[in-house]
């Protein structure tokens, strides 16, 4: 059990580090899509909800699982859709080619 905890802490620390590195490269321009995108990804708790709703253990767990599946899938489906809808709107201007203009504030 302790080995499992330590393994989990490894994964958590490394993922936090990778997350920090990757996300600090996201320009302020895209902070709203970033937030709705990470929100969609955190809908991965759907994985836990699916097992809760489908394992037929007892009625209470099943119903709680059902509500959790609905909430999580709402976030997953809605989150990805709306992030894509936002990103589709970001367009470079006709004059934008002149210099290699970065939007990333650095």
């Amino acid at each position: 059990m302790i080995a499992q905890l330590i393994f989990g802490l490894y994964v958590f620390s490394l993922a936090t580090f990778v997350g920090y590195q990757v996300i600090s490269r996201v320009p302020p321009l895209l902070h709203t899509p970033l937030m709705s995108g990470t929100n969609a990804i955190s809908g991965i708790s759907l994985v836990g909800s699916l097992v809760a709703a489908g394992s037929d253990h007892n009625q209470v767990s099943t119903i709680l699982g059902f509500v959790a599946v609905a909430c999580a899938s709402l976030n997953v489906v809605g989150g990805f859709l709306i992030t894509d809808r936002m990103l589709r709107m970001f367009k470079r201007g006709p004059s934008g080619k002149k210099t290699e203009k970065t939007g990333d504030g650095k």
């Binding site: 499992q4 905890l5 393994f7 989990g8 994964v11 958590f12 993922a15 936090t16 990778v18 997350g19 920090y20 990757v22 996300i23 600090s24 902070h31 970033l34 937030m35 990470t38 929100n39 990804i41 955190s42 991965i44 708790s45 994985v47 836990g48 097992v51």
Partner: peptide
């Protein structure tokens, strides 16, 4: 979500939770 990963022993939840958590913290 990361805590769920610890409780259910699912690294994918730990990873996604950590990504979400660090993004929120950074913002």
């Amino acid at each position: 979500a990361a805590a769920t990963g610890f409780a259910l022993n699912q690294p994918i939840l730990i990873i996604s939770g950590a990504l979400d958590g660090s993004s929120g913290l950074l913002l």
